[in-house]
Design a protein around this nucleic acid. Structure first.
Length: 497
DNA sequence: TAATATT
């Protein structure tokens, strides 16, 4: 049958022949090969694919910068029929050594990666199988793929991906099925929506990491505050220079960002059963790679009080939306070897960073290293401007688990809900210092578990600062949660029961 | 309730 095709090609015009050499079928199929062990190269795998016909092109996908094996490949046979044979013979049929899922052999997705026709389905029963999901979605169109997400033990995670042939079919399924029913054992009605795009996934990972890692620096992170608001509202004569501890913090953030980004980008390199976090030291390539990245508006050198290394911190741009990149000259050596997330593929962080994910970089920058040493001064006299009024400074002897806090005047005291679990009084204070003199910060601690209850109080010495903080920080996203920042009600009104 | 990856 191949002879017949060659014959057809010979009948084409001279120009067509030049564009399309006769031995290559114009309708050849490029296959995507997945679940390839990362230690296998092209030559190791060729024997697997050779039996189905002559191969036109076969290449393992590798990271552009690092050359790291991505665990997948593209394969094009000379003949379309070979591709069909190979897919039929191999797809989902073998588990390559070291993998825990079978090899994938299927037509490669093109530019949009099929994302516009791929659905995420949530709130499924754990007992539902691929066939059940297919049956549910079949009325809306042709299903190209249906995958239930499972843990390594094979149990369903209660969600799935379903890929239709067209965007319209997928949309129809959403319209009819989303919220239409509640599956047995599910906590709410069926969720049917378009799957996250690759960028959204990156962001999600970053945010999760930011949330997991705790301390967050609104100076770097929050694209809409606090400065723009403060400038607009003229609550403060001028943005204060970054206090020394924030210079250090930015360095920490940058290092954490490098690590976070590396870990995120590194997911593709993780061996099965391994998550993104391990104790690997942030490797030196991170430093050199990140040195190449210049953040918009970031340039000034400062001296880190911890280690004396040169640092950079954001300039006081009137619009913090400009400041979405990492500001790094030199990562603090003190961070290296502190059990940051896997930085082994740190160059990938740079890749993420330079490949059009400024928001991801910013989100990554929001994550700061665990083990941050509070700068002497946090928790004491005000970092900015004049010290708080006498008698309002939290006593050094006050235990952070006592749950009491000092109130400022009415209109100056904030309730903060949905704090990250890791936040203590000091982190809470750091987060609100940009808005004025924080005279007290208190995270509530559960006595039984010694864990944060994820809410707390912050008090300022004036209502304008409190309002500025609400404006900038209410709704501020940390990880999967959003802060809720409200005025605390006066004492006499705060006893509803 | 979010993943093994798509030049």
């Amino acid at each position: 049958m191949f002879d017949k095709d060659c014959g057809n090609n010979q009948q084409q015009t001279q120009q067509q022949v030049l564009q399309q050499p006769p031995q290559v079928q114009p309708d050849r199929i490029k296959l995507f090969i997945g679940q390839i062990p990362r230690h296998l190269g092209e030559n190791d795998l060729k024997p697997l694919f050779d039996p189905y016909g002559p191969i036109l092109e076969f290449s393992i996908l590798r990271d552009k910068l690092t050359g790291i094996h991505k665990g997948c490949a593209f394969l094009t046979y000379v003949h379309k029929e070979s591709a069909i044979l190979a897919q039929r013979a191999l797809h989902d049929k073998h588990v390559l050594p070291g993998m825990n899922r079978p090899i994938q052999v299927k037509p490669a997705d093109t530019d949009n990666r099929g994302e516009d026709r791929k659905l995420f389905v949530g709130m499924l029963s754990k007992s539902q199988k691929e066939e059940d999901i297919k049956a549910l979605f079949a009325p809306f169109g042709g299903i190209e793929e249906c995958t239930i997400l499972r843990g390594t033990d094979g149990t369903s995670k209660g969600c799935a991906f379903v890929k239709f042939g067209t965007h319209q079919e997928a949309a129809a399924a959403i319209n009819s099925l989303h919220g239409s029913q509640t599956m047995p054992g599910a906590s709410s009605s069926l969720v049917v929506k378009f799957a996250d795009t690759e960028k959204e996934r990156q962001l999600r990972r970053m945010q999760q990491m930011a949330g997991n890692m705790g301390i967050l620096n609104p100076f770097v992170f929050n694209p809409y505050g606090p400065y723009p608001y403060m400038a607009a509202a003229q609550q403060q004569p001028a943005p204060p220079p970054p206090p020394p501890y924030l210079v250090g913090l930015n360095g920490l953030n940058a290092a954490a960002a490098a690590a976070a980004a590396a870990a995120a980008a590194n997911n593709s390199n993780a061996t099965p059963n391994t998550t993104g976090m391990n104790g690997t030291t942030l490797s030196s390539p991170a430093i050199s790679m990140l040195n190449g990245g210049q953040g918009a508006g970031g340039q000034h050198n400062g001296t880190d009080l911890y280690n004396g290394l040169t640092q950079t911190y954001p300039a006081h741009s009137p619009d913090m939306r400009e400041q979405q990149i990492l500001y790094v000259d030199v990562l603090p050596q003190a961070l290296l070897g502190q059990g940051l997330p896997n930085g082994a593929d740190a160059a990938a962080a740079a890749a993420l960073h330079t490949a059009g994910y400024p928001a991801a970089a910013a989100a990554a920058a929001a994550a700061a290293a665990a083990g941050l040493q509070p700068y002497p001064g946090v928790g004491g006299a005000g970092i900015y401007g004049s010290p708080p009024p006498m008698g309002l400074v939290p006593s050094m002897g006050m235990s952070s688990r006592e749950g009491c806090s000092i109130s400022g005047p009415e209109g100056c005291n904030l309730f903060i809900y949905h704090l990250p679990q890791e936040f203590g009084d000091a982190e809470l204070m750091q987060m609100f210092l940009p808005f004025g003199n924080v005279i007290s910060s208190k995270v509530f601690i559960d006595r039984a578990t010694n864990q944060s209850k994820c809410f707390g109080f912050v008090s300022f010495d004036n209502p304008a600062s409190a309002q500025a903080a609400i404006q900038a920080m209410n709704g501020f996203q940390i990880g999967m949660k959003r802060l809720k920042v409200q005025l605390k009600r006066p004492k006499d009104a705060s006893r509803p029961y």
